[in-house]
């Protein structure tokens, strides 16, 4: 469904991604793992159109998406979140979702009941009239980040460390929410997380990045036993 081929990105001469290949199948949850600066978020940035690659192709549902603008990709069904939540300033939580529905869906229709449903599923119903930029706690900001992406009605949802920084209880709850959402909306997902336990719990398959290259991929449990993967994870304790 999503196919990344020979993708390379460089920032001022520094190679951030080098001939990266991976695929996401329908209804699959793919985990991107690897140390900081390995190229996970850069991959998201290329897929969502924030960063232009030097070479490579990315196809999604038959669209050659590297040729499309950022907003077109959203209407093809690719939604993403940012590591640091990016609420739309000066709007309420509900208005954030209205804008996402209006511009993210191909037909541009705003369905209020859909918005209510999304707010309900990420536990933000009670905050729907709050100011998105100033009146939310961290967990709520992360929930809004996911809700915004959901409101564009994606088929592929890319989550960039949505669980990072949360304390254990809310992390667990939020993870359950994400699993529920995935079922409810029949989503494919790409997940960036540092926490191995989370990855094991959520992902069907993982792709391991190091120094801008894919060094391993496959079943999460097997992959994390791979010595090369373990080495790349210096300083991180493996489960």
């Amino acid at each position: 469904m999503l196919k990344v081929e020979d993708l390379s990105v460089s920032f001022g001469g520094v190679r951030a991604l080098q001939n990266v290949n991976f695929e996401v199948h329908k209804h699959e949850v793919l985990g991107l793992v690897g140390p900081n600066g390995a190229g996970k978020t850069t991959s998201f940035n290329v897929l969502s159109g924030v960063v232009k690659p030097v070479s490579g192709t990315v196809t999604y549902d038959g669209h050659d998406i590297l040729k499309s603008s950022m907003h077109q990709r959203v209407t093809y069904g690719i939604g993403r979140t940012f590591q640091i939540p990016q609420p739309m300033h000066e709007l309420t939580v509900r208005e954030n979702l209205i804008v996402a529905q209006r511009f993210g869906r191909p037909d541009g229709k705003v369905k209020q009941d859909r918005i209510d449903e999304i707010l309900e599923s990420v536990n933000l119903s009670h905050k729907s009239e709050s100011d998105a930029a100033t009146e939310l706690a961290l967990t709520e900001r992360k929930a809004l980040e996911v809700a915004k992406a959901l409101a564009t009605e994606p088929t592929l949802l890319m989550l960039d460390e949505v669980l990072a920084g949360l304390e254990t209880t809310s992390k667990k709850l939020f993870m359950e929410t994400l699993k529920k959402i995935r079922k409810q909306y029949n989503l494919s997902m790409i997940v960036i997380e540092h926490d191995i336990e989370t990855i094991m719990n959520m992902c069907d398959r993982v792709v391991v990045f190091n120094f801008g290259q894919v060094i391993a991929e496959g079943d999460p449990e097997e992959t994390f036993r791979n010595p090369e993967v373990v080495r790349s994870y210096t300083g991180e304790v493996l489960a």
Binding site: S48, V50, S69, M70, H71, V74, T75, G79, R80, F82, Q86, P87, M88, H89, E90, L91, E95, N96, I98, V99, A100, R102, F103, G104, R105, V110, A133, K148, A149, A151, T152
Partner: peptide, 23 residues
């Protein structure tokens, strides 16, 4: 909804573009 998106673009253009707003 145009107005809402435009209002948001002021301080958070990336946030609006990533949900499909053709800024």
């Amino acid at each position: 909804t145009y107005g809402l998106a435009l209002k948001a673009m002021h301080d958070s253009e990336m946030a609006t573009r990533i949900v499909g707003v053709p800024a």
